[in-house]
Amino acid sequence: AGGPLPADADDETALAALLAAAFPGPDGPGPDPVALSLLDDTAEYLGAAVADLINLFRPERILLGGWAGLLLGPHLLPEVRRYAEEYALRHAAARTTIELGRLGPDAVTVGAATLPLADFLARGGSKPRATVRAPVRRS
C-alpha cells in the first residue's frame, strides 16, 4: 500500500507512507483500500491488546505514545477505543480512558531521565553515602 519505499527507508518512513496512502489530502487521489484495510486491522489488534491491559490491570488511563502511537493516533484512536470497548470487560472498560500522549515521541526517554533526578531529590539533594566494605579475609 502506498507504493514501494526506498531500500534505506526506516519503519517511521514506511508508516508515514502507509498513512499518506490511506488518508491522502483533499487534492490527492482517493484512499488506498489496501492501506485502509491494513490500518483497520491494526486498530483492531491494538484495541484488543489495550482491552487485555484493561482487563488485567484496570487502569484509569492508557496513553498511546512513541513515534508510532503519535503517527497512528490521530487517525486510529476512535477505532482503537471502539475495539478496546468491544473486547474488554464492560465494567473495567467503563472506568478507563484511552488517549494520545502529549509529551512527544521521546516521552519514555525523558521519563527515564527523570529517575536519577527524583532519586537525588528524595535524598534531599545529597550524594549517596558510600558503603564501606570490610576486607575479605582468606584463610
Results as ranks from 00 to 15, higher is better:
residue 3 G to T: 06
residue 3 G to R: 02
residue 4 P to W: 03
residue 8 D to V: 07
residue 9 A to Y: 01
residue 10 D to E: 11
residue 15 L to P: 01
residue 17 A to K: 06
residue 21 A to K: 07
residue 21 A to W: 09
residue 22 A to T: 03
residue 22 A to V: 03
residue 23 F to T: 00
residue 23 F to E: 09
residue 24 P to S: 04
residue 25 G to N: 03
residue 26 P to I: 05
residue 27 D to A: 10
residue 34 V to P: 00
residue 34 V to M: 02
residue 35 A to N: 08
residue 36 L to R: 15
residue 37 S to R: 11
residue 38 L to Y: 07
residue 38 L to A: 13
residue 39 L to Q: 04
residue 42 T to W: 01
residue 43 A to E: 02
residue 44 E to N: 09
residue 48 A to V: 05
residue 48 A to R: 10
residue 50 V to P: 00
residue 51 A to W: 06
residue 55 N to M: 04
residue 55 N to W: 03
residue 56 L to T: 08
residue 56 L to Y: 09
residue 56 L to G: 02
residue 57 F to C: 12
residue 63 L to E: 15
residue 63 L to S: 14
residue 64 L to I: 15
residue 67 W to I: 06
residue 67 W to G: 12
residue 68 A to D: 00
residue 68 A to M: 12
residue 70 L to E: 08
residue 70 L to R: 02
residue 70 L to D: 01
residue 75 H to Q: 14
residue 75 H to C: 07
residue 76 L to K: 07
residue 76 L to V: 02
residue 77 L to Y: 06
residue 77 L to S: 07
residue 79 E to W: 08
residue 80 V to G: 09
residue 80 V to I: 15
residue 81 R to P: 10
residue 83 Y to K: 13
residue 83 Y to F: 15
residue 86 E to M: 14
residue 86 E to I: 03
residue 86 E to D: 13
residue 88 A to M: 07
residue 89 L to W: 10
residue 90 R to A: 14
residue 90 R to V: 12
residue 94 A to W: 00
residue 95 R to D: 14
residue 97 T to A: 14
residue 97 T to Y: 01
residue 98 I to Y: 11
residue 99 E to A: 12
residue 100 L to R: 08
residue 101 G to A: 14
residue 104 G to D: 07
residue 105 P to I: 09
residue 105 P to R: 13
residue 105 P to D: 08
residue 111 G to T: 10
residue 112 A to V: 12
residue 112 A to W: 02
residue 113 A to Q: 10
residue 114 T to E: 12
residue 114 T to M: 14
residue 114 T to A: 14
residue 114 T to V: 12
residue 116 P to D: 13
residue 117 L to R: 13
residue 120 F to Q: 08
residue 122 A to W: 03
residue 123 R to E: 08
residue 126 S to H: 14
residue 129 R to N: 07
residue 131 T to P: 01
residue 132 V to P: 01
residue 133 R to M: 13
residue 134 A to Q: 12
residue 135 P to Y: 00
residue 135 P to A: 12
residue 137 R to S: 14
